[in-house]
Design a protein around this nucleic acid. Structure first.
Lengths: 116, 116
DNA sequence: TTCATATATACTCATCGATTCATATGACCG
DNA sequence: CGGTCATATGAATCGATGAGTATATATGAA
């Protein structure tokens, strides 16, 4: 195990649903820990821990305001994800509405499918 | 424990580096299992299992060609990821070159950083 | 100073998923 | 048919991590 351990990829960070929820909240506007806690109905300790991960990975930064810490988005890691997607975009450049159909299907399909 | 368990999100699927590597390979052109195995220098059993996960999640589909199975990209799940990114794009619509600087820095930074 | 609020961290536990090893299936080839 | 190539699957292992509980730190208020 290298000393550089814990260098999580941006993809691993956003694999966690609660972290994506936090990021989506912050996408709208900056929020304090307590505000996130209430809006997502998530234990404070959990919010703090996820924010810590997000901060270490550069997804957010915080500002101290009295006892509150206000968190806001930092764009770079998500830009990295966006950049990774580039080579695949040609696949849906053509049929634009395939996503809607996909999301509808995903809404409730059991699992374990065959290839085709 | 819901019966629907194991329904991995697209984000969890691409959190795995080897799976991203496989997808990137397939983005260029369809490939057989053996071709992936050789190009990525990855054990066959590992390739097969990742492909299984990718297939179940709808990222790829396979075609049988004699003893080979040729895999190719299916775009829908990645479109979903792309769609999730939409609300964040306004953050980098402005400063376009921030990503390059970020990637350069990421190239070798230890870890555990403070907020700012 | 004492109390309340806001946030962070340490520790433990349980779960989950990637890898490895062994084996199974199926197609082609002599 | 027997053998070998290509791929898939099952079981055991092992490390990572998310959640919960308890507690620590810091700010503000009375």
């Amino acid at each position: 195990m290298s000393i550089y351990e814990g260098m999580e990829s941006s993809f691993a960070i956003i694999a966690e649903p609660n972290r994506r929820a936090i990021l989506s909240l912050l996408a709208a506007s900056e929020q304090s820990v307590g505000e996130i806690e209430r809006q997502l109905r998530m234990p404070q300790t959990s919010v703090s821990k996820h924010l810590r991960v997000l901060r270490d990975a550069g997804f957010v930064e915080s500002r101290v305001e009295a006892q509150r810490r206000v968190y806001r988005i930092r764009p770079e890691p998500l830009m990295e994800v966006d950049a990774w997607l580039a080579p695949f975009r040609r696949y849906w450049a053509t049929h634009v509405d395939a996503l809607e159909r996909h999301l509808d299907r995903m809404a409730q399909t059991p699992k374990k499918g065959g290839s085709r």
